[in-house]
Computed example of a mutant assay.
Amino acid sequence: MYITISAQKLGGNYSPSVAGYVDYLEKENQMPEREQGQKFENFFNQYEDDISPAEVIQEIDANTSKLKKIEPKFYSITVNPSQYELRRLEDNSEALRRYTRELMKDYASCFNREINGRPISVNDIKYYAKVEHHRTFKGNDFQVKENQVYATKILQLKNEIQKIQRGEKEGNIKKIELEINRLEKAAPHQQNGKRIVQGMFKEGNQSHIHIIVSRKDISNSVSLSPGSKYKSSEVEIKGKMVKRGFDRDAFFQKAEQTFDKNFGYQRNFVETYQARKTYIQNPKLYFSAVIGLPASEKALALKMLRESGLPLLPVIPISQAQLTVKLIKSLQKSIGVALRSGSIGI
C-alpha cells in the first residue's frame, strides 16, 4: 500500500478551486473505452454514491471560510494498493469504495483536534473520492528515464529522415529506419514488445483511489490540515489551550491494518510502512530483517522486491555475508535514485 497526501498547487500557488482537479479525475470517464459499455466510476463520499462532478466542485469550493490565499483549500490523498493487495479484492470497485470509507475513519482519528470537546470523527470530514482503473507512465518513472537515451537517439534519427525527405541532406533512409528499429528493441524497459514511453498505459490491474479532502471540516468552521508539521501538541489561542496536529505515521499504519482486517490479507514484512521507513533510513537493518524472516516469508519478500520495479541493485542480498560496506553504499545510492524518481516514499 502506497499512500500520498498533498496540497494541490497550480505552479507555485495553491489552487483557488478544485475544478481543475475534478476535471482531471474525470479523464477515465471520457476515454473511448466507455463507448464499449465500460462502467463509469462516479464520485462518492462516506454515505453517498454517484455524486456529480458539479456537486463536488460546489461543495469543496464553498467550504473555505476564512482560509487565506496562501493556504491550501483542499488536499489530495492517493491510495495505491499493490498488485498483491488488488488480487485479494473480489469485486474491485465496490471493495475499494468500502475500504475508502473505513480508511477515512482512520484519517479522522489521526487528528489531534477536538470539536466542542469531542474528538474528530469521519462525520466531521468533507471528502469526495473516486476509483480509477488505469495508470500511465510519467516522465519521472525510472523506466521512462532509463529509456530516455534511446528516445533521444530515435528522435534524432527521425529528424534526419525528415531532412533527407525535404532534400536538405543526403542519406540512406532504409538504413536509418533499421537503426531506429534496433534502438526500439534495445531500450531496457519494454511492455508487450514496445519501448516504454511517457503516456503509455501500464499493464495489469492498476486500480487506485483518489480522495479530495476539504481543508475545513464539514461545518466550514474548523481547519483540519493533514499537512501539519505537528503530530500532537497544544497551543494557546485567545487564552484557551487548543489541541493541534496530525499523525501521518499512525494514519499510514492504520491504513494497512484496516485493509488487512477487512480483506483477510496476510501482509509480508516488505509491504509494511515501517519496513519502508527502515529501508530509507537504514538499509542494512532493513535487509538484515529480510534475511532473518522464516524461509517461506523470505522467499515471498525477495519475490516482491524483484517485482517492485524499484531501481535497487543488480543483486538483492540474501545472507548477512553479502551485506558489505560497499553494498550498503550502493544501496544508499540506489535509494536516492528511487526517492528522486518518486518510486518510493513515506
Rank of each mutant, 00 (worst) to 15 (best):
G227S: 14
D260N: 08
D249A: 12
T278E: 03
L224Q: 05
S233F: 15
M241G: 07
F252H: 11
S228Y: 04
A275F: 03
G239P: 02
K243L: 02
Q281H: 13
R244D: 09
G264H: 09
F252S: 08
K243T: 06
P283Y: 12
A255L: 09
G264E: 12
S228A: 11
K231L: 01
K238Y: 15
R244L: 14
V242H: 10
F269D: 07
Y230V: 14
Y230N: 11
F263T: 02
R267N: 04
Q266H: 05
K277R: 15
D260R: 03
P226S: 12
I237V: 13
S233P: 12
F252Q: 08
D247E: 11
A250H: 07
S228F: 10
Q253Y: 05
R276C: 12
E234C: 15
L285H: 06
I280D: 00
T278Q: 09
K229E: 11
T278A: 01
K229M: 11
T272I: 00
P283D: 09
S223Q: 01
S225G: 09
P226V: 07
V235D: 04
K240T: 07
I280H: 04
G239W: 12
S223H: 00
G239R: 06
G227R: 09
L224S: 08
Y265F: 03
K261M: 02
S233Y: 15
F263R: 02
E271F: 06
D260T: 03
V235N: 01
S223A: 06
N268I: 01
K261Q: 07
G264T: 05
P283C: 12
D247G: 07
K243S: 04
D249N: 14
N268F: 04
G264Y: 09
F259Y: 02
Y273G: 00
K240I: 03
Q274C: 07
T278L: 10
T258A: 01
Y230M: 09
V235M: 08
N268Y: 01
K229L: 12
D249I: 14
V242Y: 10
E256P: 00
F259L: 01
K284N: 05
R248E: 15
L224V: 11
F269N: 07
N262A: 06
E271Y: 06
G245V: 14
A250S: 08
K240L: 04
V235T: 08
Y273H: 10
P226Q: 08
P226R: 09
K231T: 07
F259R: 01
K261S: 00
E234R: 15
I280E: 04
R267D: 01
G227L: 15
D247Q: 10
Q257M: 09
K229C: 05
R267C: 03
S233I: 15
L224I: 13
N282G: 07
T272K: 04
N262T: 06
F251K: 07
R248Y: 15
V222G: 00
T278W: 01
G245T: 13
V235Y: 06
V222D: 06
F246W: 08
K231Y: 00
Y279R: 12
K231F: 05
V242L: 06
Q281N: 14
Y279W: 13
E256D: 00
